[in-house]
Design a binder for these strands. Sequence first.
DNA 1: GATCTCAACCGAAACGTTTTGGGAAAAGAA
DNA 2: TTCTTTTCCCAAAACGTTTCGGTTGAGATC
Lengths: 336, 336
Amino acid sequence: MATIRDISKLAGVSVTTVSRALNHYDDVSPTTKQKIIEIAKEIGYVPNRSAQNLVKNQNNTLAIILSGLEKNGGKDNIIYRLLSGMYSYSESVNYEVVLYTTSSAHQREKTYVQFCREHNIGGAVLNGIRLDDPYFKELVNSDLPCVLIDIPAIGGNTSSISIHNKQAANDAVSYLIEQNHKHIGMINGHGEASVSLERYEGYVMALNKYKIEINEQYIVHADFQQNVAYEKTKQLLNKCPEITALFCASDMMALGAMKAMKEMNLKIPDDISVIGFDDIPLAEFATPPLTTMEQDFYRMGEEAARQLLKMIKHEKTERNIFLEHNLIVRNSVRML
Amino acid sequence: MATIRDISKLAGVSVTTVSRALNHYDDVSPTTKQKIIEIAKEIGYVPNRSAQNLVKNQNNTLAIILSGLEKNGGKDNIIYRLLSGMYSYSESVNYEVVLYTTSSAHQREKTYVQFCREHNIGGAVLNGIRLDDPYFKELVNSDLPCVLIDIPAIGGNTSSISIHNKQAANDAVSYLIEQNHKHIGMINGHGEASVSLERYEGYVMALNKYKIEINEQYIVHADFQQNVAYEKTKQLLNKCPEITALFCASDMMALGAMKAMKEMNLKIPDDISVIGFDDIPLAEFATPPLTTMEQDFYRMGEEAARQLLKMIKHEKTERNIFLEHNLIVRNSVRML
DNA sequence: GATCTCAACCGAAACGTTTTGGGAAAAGAA
DNA sequence: TTCTTTTCCCAAAACGTTTCGGTTGAGATC
């Protein structure tokens, strides 16, 4: 590999001059600079990042930390959208992104902080991390800039980005009620996600607003998983056949619920209505197409990266950033 | 940040000894080693990757190079599956993965080789790169170990991984013919992908086998894009209404084709049959569910990483690795 | 008592950059 | 001519680690 020293020899100047020429300092004469750049190109010089990082002690890299890349996961396309939003912004400011994910399978895993320190990461965005993840606490308590997707910013050097989940859930359930549904079930995610609580609150808020009594039996938890939702929906609808509409805290769960309904010979939306959350690509293709609450994950990724950069540069930032949500009406809900 | 030097001072030994203790060399007494490890933990020591890379000149990192992360892309979930397969294997051998993607949007992009050299990457897997990509040639002509997804291995230090595309296309089209279809159109990808040629050959092979004449009018190119396929399908079916079945070289294109058919009031599969390629998650949810040729992208990712590691270690490897394909019969094809 | 072996340790160089704190020569001002 | 400024360049230190080639001292062997 060609180094800066090779160039310096060929050009007959010092390494200092080469470095300064390549970094466009203005105390190198145009002729010399020109010559150095040409030689560099000619011998295929590529700067060694490790050496640069070592001396500069910062390397223009952001991390995205995910709870895990599952073999059969990713169907909701959320991670892809987050990633591409993040890349898009990072690229525009000349930052790189590295992805870290802990597989519970492998015991050799490091903590998020270790990973970030090791790689001299400037800041991290976290998605899909459970509140009870032991490494999560460590990270937000460290001084590393973090932006949390869907978790309210707490302590440390963190900020958050999400939609107004409570309001969005309220909007979804209100929509159901406005279609004259009164017996509305909810398939919620697991308790170790703040959005589960917020969406539950939104659900309650809507029912209260319309003076509908809350029946705790109507609420089940399905871990944001399609197949769990499938099981839980069967149980729920068997136990409470009076339910006419189901609010699902994610589209993947809605898909599981719909599968269960079909197997129970319930026609959607004639016999039962379903509303989802997220607007994943599959929602549009479901039968019937799923009415759902849209979130713009691409923008979340973009904003997260922008936020991180502000934090790294110690610019003033909002603690919690909220994006708009948007009800996408398709055909899985009917007017009673 | 705590360094190895801090530890050496606290432990009263040289940095050499600390380094050797932490790396489990056996010329450190158990007592000293124990002490060093404890101190390291106590002061929260994390090794500095850049420094390690610099001196070791290799950093246990693989790259995955993608043609681009599109704002509205990723619906086929292929990249996710590739990534998770790659991570899974890489993790098991203590390697990390970094993702590189060139956005045509931004002129500041580096060549793939530059990126890999800069980061001291051990090897790269490439997906979705066009044959006419100028940086592609540069990469495969370099001595950097590369494994190409869906492109036959050529020159340099490369190997490839894919299914038998020609055979798979032949199987798909044969299946159509066995359902008594004779007028079979093909929606192919763009010409700068080897799979397009191979799948075309498979299509021809099947027709030849059954002595069906090839009509070049029946074949259109849609760039692997859903919306292009939508347009092209309309044109094709208007021009050649005798077509009773369509072989699409990707599921995303099949989805576009199906949309076009529905708008033309053609019932699938009653009026026209469709067969796709890839088996993406959406295929199952299409209306009707799409019959398609499955590829296991998770395994491709895994195999690609395994292959790369062999190449890095100079072990003997196969040049081209082929995985099995598998026809998934759903309801988009009917017997004539 | 001399020599050898072995365990345990260490000093210094090396990796490829950037940066600090200059300095020499040329150009301009007096 | 002398002084000042500007332009262009450089030597050396620093970043945090690994590794090469040792040294030291205790015990074993003769």
